[in-house]
Nucleic acid binder design. Sequence first.
RNA 1: GCGCCCGUAGCUCAGUAGGAUAGAGCAACGGUUUCCUAAACCGUGUGCCAGGGGUUCGAGUCCCUUCGGGCGCACCA
Length: 560
Amino acid sequence: MNPIHEIKHLISQKIVAALESAREEGLINYEQLPEFIVEVPREKGHGDFACNLAMLMAKEAKMAPRRIAEIIVNAMDLGEKEQIEKIEIAGPGFINIFLNNKWLYQIPFIVEKMGERFGYNEEQGRKVQVEFVSANPTGNLHMGNARGGAIGDTLANILKYAGYEVEREFYINDAGNQIEIFADSLEARYMQLTGHDVEFPHNGYAGQDLIQTVRNIIHQYGDSLIDMPKEKRRKIIVDFALEEKISYIKRTLKSFGVEYDVWFSEKELHESGAVQKVIKSLQEKGYIYEKEGAWWFKTQSSEEDKDNVVLRANGLPTYFAADIAYHQNKYQRGFDWVINVWGADHHGHVNRMKDAIEALGYKRDMLDVLLMQLVRLYRGKELVRMSKRTGTTIALDELIEELGKDAARFFFVMRSPDSQLDFDLRLAAEQSQDNPVYYVQYAHARICSIFRQAAAAGISRPPLDAINTSLLQEEEELALLRKIADFPEEIRLSAATLAPHRIARYVLDLAGLFHSFYNRHRVINVEAQLQGARLLLMQATGITLKNALSILGVSAPEYM
RNA sequence: GCGCCCGUAGCUCAGUAGGAUAGAGCAACGGUUUCCUAAACCGUGUGCCAGGGGUUCGAGUCCCUUCGGGCGCACCA
């Protein structure tokens, strides 16, 4: 249910029909219709909807745009029951369409009936997977992971509302080189903490969290691991640490409001032979060749400028090879759209990944990678290093404790993924009082308060069939209605452009319109008919706020 | 050197997949509370949309180029 989209669609159809009938009458000549849009103009004076078709086909039709617009308008079937009030031709040739408010007055009823489902678009019949965070299980979750978590989870919610079947997935990088380094680091710490003089590896993970992990290992195993064969000892240590880290990640993300459908292990991909198998099959298809002892994936597209190694001279597959097998696995599971949320430092990986899935026989556009720029952490003016190795970073669980889940999530998703984020811990802590998230939550709490007040005064919302929403004539009321009506369309557009921050903007706009209304008009103790209509308007506003906030993973409190 | 992202008000950022007169928040100043929560509202000011070319009816948005910032360019992940 997307009223704005339906109206846009209806208007488009009418315009196309008008044009075709004008052509039949010989009033205008053209071969093909250009891609035109029907949009909600920024200026109210330009109508409720506007269309740019006349300008776009001026060349083809060899006519002045305003003349074309005139022909269209004259040929348009307005329909008896239609709600078009007037049509104007304006500016260089815009067709501006003014509706009467009938359609708007249906909105609160629709919202009330749909409740939690208001905002949902038609089923798309597509299965989409969003893979995000996928942090290395070798350390704590940092601010980049936090941003990825907020963006990925919000995007998954948006896609669900946009009509897709959505699954969330976390890819556990529990294999490969970094795990070896992880093991070296843990082992060295274990030896040190059990009183042996062992040097810590230069490239090891020096974070305090690993020391704690090793203490836990000692708590369970004591120094019994020392006399074991090295391989056995390492396995016990690594398995213990991975288990601990992964459960920390799960726990922390859950407290951030993020829950996954699937936790996918890279190690299993290796152990099941899937990696070797995919390399072999690409080899057979001629996509892989040998050079200098290694095996290379041949670049297919012009967008990637070099070939990439999948199998090293030492016989071990690269991360890229595992990722190819991983993506094949995703498509084999029936996803016809896969979205990965990655940090900008991985952008070089995007095109070769697309090349690879193409080589596997899938379409390039079955994969989208949402790149987000990196987060830089400041404390005042001072840059806080985020390296896991130096271990001086602030972890996500600490941030949640300091700011709360709601404010933290809102902050991370408020900005476009394309803009880099300077997160000042000191400022965030100071500003927690006037963080924009409270502005929105306050709107919701105020609405709840209205209903509490009403109940206390013995006032309740009349039954729907006794409400006349056309009494809502004030500018602030109409603006609210329009904004509410726009919610499903806003979701559709956020999904289509992979732009989760639009929902944060939307909810701020909606809250702003509510606050303006609230300060100028009263809901309770106005004339009875109007009171009923306003109560329904408030209910619709509250539902929309709550739904939008739930997409962001932010709570909608009843009191503040 | 090559590639990707960014450059918009004093600061932080939007700008509806090319549309009409570029907007919000913060900060500054002034006002609003016998009335549903003042964590709110209303008002006042600011822009060579980094610079320069181009594409077209129309460019903050697309293309080229210069400058500035970030990130990549491994038989790491």
